[in-house]
């Protein structure tokens, strides 16, 4: 099957004798080309799910398949974009994008062609030789998206990618991401804690429960794009998602108070 399939995923963090069940019985199927947002209270394990799919973290139990192949460690079929941008400060925008290709041993001319095309796709034509220091937050994240696309992955995993940006840049980047998604037809799993962002972007919103994280509700968003944040339908879905989420916020708070440990 093309796309992502996660079955019975669980993750237990062990530190000495104490155990923390972060994720339990998590199931999710994302068909190819779909844009899914993972939403949940902080500490529910949404980032952990993403890191496990990326192969950066080991799972405790369950099966994860991407395009029918079991995930064993990171692979070029899955690109990842981080909240912290994670650009190499000593590399220009172009050489950041070419990083994955260099490792694959792609010859310089071909690398150059790919990085030119991708930087143009993300709207950074003319900034190829700029270094991360010279770029704004939004531009840095554009480079990071281009870099993740360079290995031609079928899946793009995005971990709160716009969380560090100001509100205006954030809205702009959301529009840009939808444009890039339409042009590249990637499968996207996008972790966020912003309900507004999820409703604006996603084909489907997966709301997670408080720890141990599992799927609480799967909400399809069928509104046509571009979406109007002020439309009645948009607000109605926002309300629905928010209601689901708030119940989990309460639960998360209650367990924290019970344990007497507010992080």
């Amino acid at each position: 099957m093309r796309g992502i399939s996660i079955e019975g995923l669980s993750k237990v963090f062990r530190k000495g004798k104490s155990e923390l069940v972060a994720i339990e019985g998590f199931n999710l199927t994302v068909p190819e080309g779909e844009f899914v947002c993972l939403l949940g209270p902080s500490g529910c394990g949404k980032t952990t799910v993403l890191r496990i799919v990326a192969g950066l973290e080991d799972k405790t139990d369950g099966t994860i398949q991407v395009n029918g192949r079991k995930v064993k460690g990171p692979g070029p079929d899955r690109g990842m974009v981080f909240q912290e941008f994670a650009l190499f400060p000593w590399r220009s925008a172009r050489r950041n994008v070419e990083f994955g290709l260099e490792i694959k041993g792609v010859p310089a001319e071909r690398r150059h062609a790919v990085s030119s095309k991708l930087l143009e796709l993300v709207g950074l034509k003319g900034f190829e030789d700029s270094h991360p220091k010279q770029l704004s937050g939004g531009m840095k994240q554009r480079v990071a998206i281009a870099r993740a696309l360079a290995n031609a992955p079928s899946v793009l995993l995005m971990d709160e990618p716009f969380g560090a940006l100001d509100a205006q840049t954030r809205n702009l980047m959301q529009k840009e991401l939808l444009r890039i998604w339409t042009e590249t037809k990637k499968t996207i799993v996008f972790v966020t804690h912003s309900v507004d962002e999820a409703v604006y972007l996603a084909d489907r919103i997966v709301v997670m429960t408080a720890r141990p994280g599992t799927v609480k509700k799967d909400i399809p968003v069928t509104l046509p794009r571009p979406r109007d944040r002020t439309s009645r339908e948009f607000i109605a879905i926002r309300g629905e998602v928010l209601a689901e989420l708030e119940a989990e916020f309460e639960k998360a708070r209650a367990t924290e108070l019970e344990k007497g440990s507010v992080k």
Partner: peptide, 15 residues
Amino acid sequence: VDPVLVDAARTLGAK
């Protein structure tokens, strides 16, 4: 070394 940079490198295929 920033662990996020190592993570990024790994997702890009770095061993």
